[in-house]
């Protein structure tokens, strides 16, 4: 029987619902992001956002896909990692729908979903993945039945660094796009702490330094330019170390910060130096959305994965490398 999966994503600030077929066709992908007037994301406010907007977003995803509730044959939800209140609100909706529609449920790892949707879009089989978002900065590759984190941030995520800096400058959340715009007008480079440790990076030092420079009345475009070049340069280096170490021939850029064009340009250069193919996920599939959850749900279900409602508790600290990737046959 052909599968039509409804994927529900709600690990942090965004709630999304997407419908994907087992042929890998994205039939719909609807989401809404909490963007407070000021400040950052409060977990409780975000979970309330999901509870309030969730049902309408799910309904809209079905309408856009041109299907009714009873055409759904599988429900997948983001089981972790993420903010506890958000995960629980999302899981509650997924469980209710699975029980009501009497269809199976699968729990998806959010980070793994970002990789799998990128692989679906690019046709990549075994990439080195650079996964960058508000909450994550990881360099991941498949080895021994798991997605293994070869490198990651030792403190804050790259998107978090951009958001916190942007907030200092009075930019609204998320600040990445505004910083990218400013950076295009900048040209003078101010040196910032460049912190690479093996395949890991650290962004807290450069954040502190950037905020200090800001008090010295350095033009905002130059400051944004310097932040981007430094932060992305560090990512390029750890990605390059992972490519040289694993000798893989594909490089995938995924996650919300993948929308940044300068970052894509830099990583394309890295891939070219190592004769690797390169793909950046397209903007609709870059951030947190339901299609990636639906697609990964289909992969898991097809490989025999099932999750009973009774055991469907959320996993806020679920690491990328804790899940056996049963649907991939590479070694």
């Amino acid at each position: 029987m052909p599968l039509t999966c409804l994927g529900i994503e709600g690990t942090a600030h965004s709630f999304g619902a997407g419908v994907v077929s087992d042929q890998g066709k994205v039939l719909s992908n609807v989401w809404d992001m909490l963007s407070p007037q000021e400040g950052g994301i409060h977990p409780r406010e975000a979970s309330r956002h999901h509870s309030d907007k969730g049902p309408d977003i799910i309904a809209k995803a079905l309408t856009e896909a041109g299907i009714g509730p009873h055409d759904i044959t599988l429900i997948a939800f983001s089981r972790g990692p993420g903010l506890g209140p958000c995960l629980r609100a999302t899981a509650t909706m997924a469980r209710s729908l699975a029980l009501k529609l009497e269809v199976p449920l699968v729990g998806v790892n959010h980070c793994v979903a970002h990789i799998e949707i990128g692989c679906l879009e690019s046709g990549f089989k075994d990439p080195v993945t650079v996964y960058v978002s508000g909450g994550n900065t990881q360099v991941i590759a498949f080895a021994g039945n798991r997605f293994r984190t070869f490198g990651e941030t030792l403190d804050i995520a790259i998107g978090n660094m951009l958001d916190v800096f942007g907030r200092t400058m009075g930019m609204r959340f998320p600040a990445g796009p505004a910083i990218e715009q400013e950076a295009m007008k900048g040209h003078r480079y101010y040196s910032l702490p460049y912190s690479v440790k093996g395949m890991d990076v650290s962004y807290s030092g450069m954040l502190t330094a950037a905020r200090r420079l800001q008090t010295e009345h350095i033009p905002l475009p130059d400051l944004c330019f310097s932040i981007q070049e430094t932060a992305f340069g560090m990512l390029a280096e750890v990605a390059e170390r992972a490519i040289a170490h694993t000798k893989k021939g594909e490089v995938l850029l995924t996650g919300g910060v993948a929308r940044n064009r300068r970052l894509g340009e830099i990583l394309a250069g890295v891939a070219a130096r190592h004769n690797a193919r390169f793909h950046t996920v397209t903007p609709p599939l870059a951030g947190d959305q339901g299609a990636m959850i639906a697609w990964t749900g289909i992969l898991q279900y097809t490989a025999g994965d099932r999750l009973s409602v009774a055991e469907s508790y959320v996993l806020p600290k679920w690491r990328t490398d804790e899940q056996d990737i049963t649907w991939r046959n590479l070694s």
């Binding site: 460049y194 070049e229 340069g233 280096e237």
Partner: peptide, 13 residues
Amino acid sequence: QKPYLLKDIDELL
């Protein structure tokens, strides 16, 4: 030289 990096950063590194 790594043409994809900012020259200042590349040379310093």
